[in-house]
Amino acid sequence: MNIGIFSGSFNPVHIGHLALANYLCEYEGLDQVWFMVSPRNPLKEADELMDDSLRLKLVQLAVEGYPKFRASDFEFRLPRPSYTVHTLDELRRAYPQHVFHLIIGSDNWLLFPRWRESERILATTPLIIYPRPGYPVDPQTLPPTVRMTSAPVFEISSTFIRQAIAEGRDIRYFLHPRVYEALCKEDNCTVSQAE
């Protein structure tokens, strides 16, 4: 199968993540998208990320019931710091029957030469770039193993979601309903769940 690896902190996962992954399955030839939840970086401030297990649980809630999505804690079991090149190596070892495609935003593509062993990633893994506002990429300049998707652009960030919840705002339509409900339980939202 063609598997898209969508790696990130998902802090928390929101409808922008889900809609993009849905588009990639339905329009870009991926059989599945695996949401690869990145473990907390020990060098970052503890309050920057929700707990690893909570972020994974929220992704599991968001993808439940859709067979083309999978929540993955694969990187939790790898040595840290976690580098994409090593994750991809381990995925190919563990699942030799699949072809893995790395999904990254256009903002990350512009920084890609600074990634650890970026040339080896390009040589071994097809890349799919999705557009991010303010980070244009000319498809004519891309290497043969890299393609730009014409997925819709979603200007939603996890930072926005966390801030809105902290302010007590009802942002239920920015999140999968089960994720919203779980976050409200976690953060004691004042928004009624009975409506």
Rank of each mutant, 00 (worst) to 15 (best):
R116H: 15
P133Y: 06
Y95T: 02
A94S: 13
Q60S: 15
L58M: 11
R77M: 14
L88Y: 05
P136L: 00
E48A: 15
I121C: 03
P133K: 10
T124F: 06
S82H: 02
H98L: 02
Y130T: 09
E64S: 09
Y130R: 03
L78N: 07
P126M: 02
I128S: 01
I103Q: 00
R80N: 14
L49A: 14
D52M: 09
D51K: 05
Y135S: 11
G105N: 00
L61H: 10
E90D: 14
P133A: 13
V137D: 09
Y66C: 10
F74N: 04
L54Q: 12
R114S: 15
E64C: 07
V63P: 10
E75H: 08
R93G: 07
N108R: 04
E48D: 15
P131V: 03
D107Y: 01
F112M: 01
Y66S: 08
Q97W: 04
P139W: 00
Y130L: 04
A71P: 11
P133L: 14
P136C: 01
Y83I: 13
P131L: 05
V63M: 04
P96V: 00
L58D: 03
A123Q: 13
P81A: 02
F100Q: 00
R120E: 15
E90V: 08
S118T: 09
Q97R: 01
T124S: 13
T125N: 03
D73K: 06
M50S: 13
L91S: 01
H101D: 02
D52F: 09
F69C: 03
L78W: 01
T87M: 04
D73M: 10
A62H: 03
D73R: 07
